[in-house]
Structure formats: C-alpha cells, structure tokens
Design a binder for these strands. Structure first.
Lengths: 259, 259
DNA sequence: CCAAAAGTGTTTCCTATACACCCATGT
DNA sequence: ACATGGGTGTATAGGAAACACTTTTGG
C-alpha cells in the first residue's frame, strides 16, 4: 500500500466495446476473466489506467494485451461512475467503442484473460460488472454517430457489396431500408467507387491480355469476391469507400445516410 | 495522507460548462479560482468527486456550492485524461454541459470560488488548466446534439419568440437560417404552441370580460412580453414548446431542425 | 428448372430553398 | 417620417419513399 493521498481516490479503468463485422453478423469482442472478481465470467476487455498514459492509450494497451487486437479506430463515448460498480473498490470506467473488420485480427487471449472471442451482438453471454449496460450505451452511441458520419465503412473490408453495407446499416440502426432507395442514395453520395474484380477478370480473359495484367489469386482483397451463404443468388458488385475524397470535402457535416 | 492504495490512483474531478441564454446572447458560467493552482484565474465550476456520489451528483454538488446554480439539465459529454492537465497530480476530469435560462438563477460565488459570473461565449477571459479545450469540446457536443434533439428549448424561457429561437439555433450551430423557412419548419413540427399574451389581453379588453379573467401583471411568465432591444421593430409572437407532446411521440429520433 | 439474392427505373410526394413585400413599433 | 425588426406566401428543385420485374447463380 505504497500510494497514499490526502483524500480518497477512485480507481480508473478503461473498457472497450469492440464491434466487428464479417459481412453477415455484427459481433462484440469479449474476454473471459481469469481472475476475481467475476473470474470465469465474460467481460469487456479493459483495465486500470497507468499514470503516464491517457485513457485512450490505456484502452489500446489493454486491448492489445488481452486480445491481441491493435491499431484500430477507438472512440470514447461515456464514463461510468455509479457507486458499487466494482465490488473491490470505487472504480470509474472510461468506455470506448471500436469498429473493426472482424477478419483483420487473430484474437489471442493474453494477460489475465483466460479466453477471448467474438460473440454475435444479440447472443451475448451473461457479463461481469455493469458491462451489459456499457454495451447498450455503446450501441446507442454508434447508432447516433452513424446518422452523422460514415462510420460504417470502418467495419467493412476495403471492398464490399451494397447488400453488405445495407445489412450493416440495418444492424446498427435497428431498422430496414428499401434496397433500391438505399443503393441510389449511397451511390449518389459520390464516395463509393466500383471495384469489380469479377468484371476485371472477365475483361482480361476475353481480351486475351498478357498474363502480367491478371490479378494473382493471393492479391485479391478480402471480400472482393464474397461467397454467397446458401449456395444461391446473384453475385453482388463490389465497391470501395473513397475516404480521402470524403475527408477533403466539406460534406463532413452533411448526413450520408439519415432517412 | 490517510488514503493508501496498492497501485497509484488518479484524482477524479468533474467540470461543468453551463450555457445560459438571455434571449440575445449565449453565455458560459465561470468562477474565479480562490485557491492555487491558477488562483485568480477564471475556470469552469467543478471539483473532486466524492466516494459516495456519481459523477453527475458530484457535478451538481460542485456547481451549487460554487455558483448557487442547481436543479438543471446536465449531460456528460467527454472525459479528459491528458497527462499533466493539472500541475498538482494526475487528474482525470469528467465533463458535463448544462443548458439553462440565464435569468432563472441568482449566481452567487461560494466554496473556493472568489467570484462567479456569466461571460458571453466568445468573450471569455483566459482560463485555467485546459478549460478552453473543454469548452470547445462542449460547444461541439451541443452543436452535434442539436441536430438530433430539441435541446434548444432548455435554454429558453417557457414562452419565447421565434426570432429568439432562431438566434439561439444560429449561435449554437454557427450558421444562419432564412427566417421564413425556419419559422415554417419549426411550426410544422407541431411541438410549438402559440401563447400570445398580447392577444389575450386585447381580447379581454375588447370583450369586457370580468376582471377575474385578466392576467395579473406578476403572473405573466418571464419573456412573454419581450422588450425590443433598440427601441424599434414589431413585437414578435410568443410560443411555448410542448415537451410532453414531444416526449410521448415517436418522433424522438427524428430531427427537429437539421437543414 | 427452381429458389434465392441482386440488379435496375419511374412516379409521386414532400421538404428544402430561394426570394420580396407589408406591418407594427419606437424614436 | 423613418428606421428597425417581424410577420407572411409562393414557386421551384431536389431528395425521399413507394413500388415490380428481370437477371444471375447454385443446387
């Protein structure tokens, strides 16, 4: 007990709600706690902040230590300060959400996480502390944020299909959209570029171009050729988001999709 | 130094950015610090959180102790955790914004505030700590929030004129609106009710109603008969916001004014 | 050939925007 | 009378919503 203060101090932790999308479902990254309290329960990755790091740095560090996930978009959304949140002592938690492409990471449990894995957002196990409340607040936060910014693209591969994008919007916003109107609005925003590798390959084949112009199988960006789930249906076209064009534009405070 | 921990703990404080509107200008409530560090500097009201209160309770308590302002709408918007924010020790600050009618309060400096008074938002004095950054972040937060919720009404008297409302929207959003289009959109929302006391009194007068139906001077709600600033111009009509109708409606996630 | 999913275009309606004149008030 | 500020309506254009059929693919 070497750290003494004139007045009582709460402990300060960070927790991260990492949302991951795989083209089909929205997931949240959880760890199984390897130590008491709530040993054996699933929980959000996070932990005590160090004295020489900001909250965001702490959240990044803990996330990497516990789950091997790093270099991601992280955004603070709320600080939880209810008395009695943690049975050990007064703990105040600064919470972040992250939006990632699920396939980009190899999740490895580390530090005092016994396990770490993705759960589909509405199939979560019972959670430690008030982490269910933190997750609900995070879902509200990204839903609200989605109305103002094109954050959905952080959850998608570099190339993606419009049905994928629409499904993601519907999962986050909790409503449905008309396919045609959705596509029209998205395409008319001017920030989507068609990158149809299907067509490229067909073109190369038909015109008998030199083999050096053909795309190597390994070079295909993930998601460029999405496989259909149930063995049927037409192949969708693929697009990428022109993030540079968006950032250099003054449309940043215009809604991209807010129907 | 009676409070000892196994690991170092940061101190946790709250700060409140209280916005007040008087029908003409947007103000922020500041205190002059009566103790070091930054003794004599102007700063946001706030202070150390107690171990048995939530952050919001702490913010309310400090605000009342230091400025005599209480019973207000308070909303957490960001937590500031940069290392070195406070020269004394590691301090993490949970920040809130509040929206009030400036005239509703008698501001009295208390606790360790030497003085307390309102400043027009873009005529602020130099501030202690990183409070300028906190205020900028608060302004961003209410600007963003205004796009999704009718929070402006928390800054207005129970009855107000459309020019007042428009001026407030313009001050917060940092842009201008066409008067006619603004009024049309606001009125078509269905959440404004005309409460024109000018007309009421005229009606009573003309129809010679019994004196008991006449409104006593002292009973007139503040702002019901706004005085024009420079001694000229037509008297505006006054309205009130039907907050109950709004809350019972499902329009809550629809934009009220987001042009 | 059938089922499942994706592509595509048109019409209607509503909302956003732009715009100008008259009216009430106080000096 | 005049200056200041507030009230009001209309016309146009652009975006949102509603809506059905065809094409591709895998089984």
């Amino acid at each position: 007990m070497n750290y003494c203060y004139e007045y009582p101090h709460p402990a300060v932790t960070t927790d991260s709600v990492v949302f991951g999308f795989d083209g089909k479902d929205l997931h949240i990254l959880l760890i199984e706690r390897g130590a008491d309290p709530f040993k054996g329960s699933w929980a959000l990755p996070g932990g005590f902040i160090k004295m020489d790091e900001t909250a965001e740095e702490g959240a990044r560090r803990e996330l990497f230590e516990e789950t091997n996930v790093r270099d991601i978009f992280l955004e603070q959304f709320h600080t939880f300060s209810k008395v009695g949140r943690d049975p050990r002592e007064r703990v105040i938690t600064i919470a972040f959400y992250a939006l990632v492409r699920k396939g980009d990471f190899e999740v490895i449990a580390g530090d005092d996480a016994a396990r770490a894995r993705w759960f589909i957002v509405d199939e979560l196990p019972p959670l430690a502390f008030d982490h269910d409340e933190i997750i609900e607040t995070a879902k509200d936060a990204i839903r609200r944020r989605l109305k103002l910014d094109p954050i959905a693209f952080r959850l998608l591969d570099e190339s993606f299909s419009l049905p994928e994008l629409q499904r993601l919007y519907e999962l986050i916003s909790g409503r449905t959209y008309d396919r045609r109107n959705f596509q029209k609005k998205m395409l008319s925003s001017g920030y989507l570029e068609r990158v149809d590798f299907n067509e490229e390959i067909k073109f190369c084949h038909l015109s008998s171009l030199d083999a050096k112009y053909l795309v190597e199988p390994g070079e295909l960006p993930k998601g460029a050729l999405p496989k259909n789930e149930k063995g049927s249906g037409r192949k969708p076209h693929t697009f990428s988001f022109l993030s540079k064009k968006f950032e250099n534009s003054d449309d940043k405070d215009k809604d991209l999709f807010n129907p």
